[in-house]
Design a protein around this nucleic acid. Sequence first.
DNA 1: TAAAAACTATAAAGTTACTATAAGGTCAAG
DNA 2: CTTGACCTTATAGTAACTTTATAGTTTTTA
Lengths: 139, 139
Amino acid sequence: MRIGQLADLLGIQTQTIRFYEKKGLLPLPARSYNGYRVYTEKHYKRLKFVCSCRAIGLSLSETRRLQDYQDNPHQPCSAVNTLIDEHIMHIRSQITSLQDLEKQLTSIRTSCTGQSKVIACTILNKIDEIESVSCNRDV
Amino acid sequence: MRIGQLADLLGIQTQTIRFYEKKGLLPLPARSYNGYRVYTEKHYKRLKFVCSCRAIGLSLSETRRLQDYQDNPHQPCSAVNTLIDEHIMHIRSQITSLQDLEKQLTSIRTSCTGQSKVIACTILNKIDEIESVSCNRDV
DNA sequence: TAAAAACTATAAAGTTACTATAAGGTCAAG
DNA sequence: CTTGACCTTATAGTAACTTTATAGTTTTTA
């Protein structure tokens, strides 16, 4: 299988596959006489695992750690559980931050009907009134 | 006011202020004889607005667009409303994605007690079984 | 059969919103 | 007169790709 077919199978781009390869998330494929990458079922499975990890929001380095556990399966799996637990906690805290944010934005939004001019727009005034204790990024 | 004081006032780093300046989000400050940046109340207000925009999750380019509206306030403010509306929609869709994700992760997680070895760990198997229609990023 | 399209390759730069590092100039206090 | 706390610029690093440039290969079509 060539890179384009593999990419189509998983709904990703060929560059992404090369990128994962460079990051060490995919074993190096064989090359055909013309230099094209040749993939097997094994590569497909590995890549699918990476895509699945991405789909549940794991980072590439977390994904890599899970791959290590897959490759050395005779360890206790508590570390896997911990990784997932921490990820769940992270997602939960993201959810609450976003919910707070949504409330704040909705309150800002409803203060203006959108019929006035910017000079009288309460939205910009309301933004000006936010006291950001400290700018909280990566919400 | 020098850059360090301004940074302290807003709880950000001096590099961040220089970065915003380079991005065109802050007017160029005057320089004192030794080359140090000299800020006024006007700069403080501008920067505070940027911080507030960041605090409600707006990107720097969205922030810039709002600044443009502030600077040309004799337009209808419907565009401001639209920008905020779209941002709210974006945040809501992020929330639902994350909630779905949390459910999926919790179900994956509860399938394993963490007492076994990786070889028998149901978590990795469950991840393998995910059919990611298309890897959905930036969740 | 020859040109056009679709595919592959590499390398390097762009994206976002910063943070970190390096190497150096300025200034007040001890 | 040196130490420490500021300030300056420029460059590189972060995550997870995407885009662009340049070029070679294969397949399709006229």
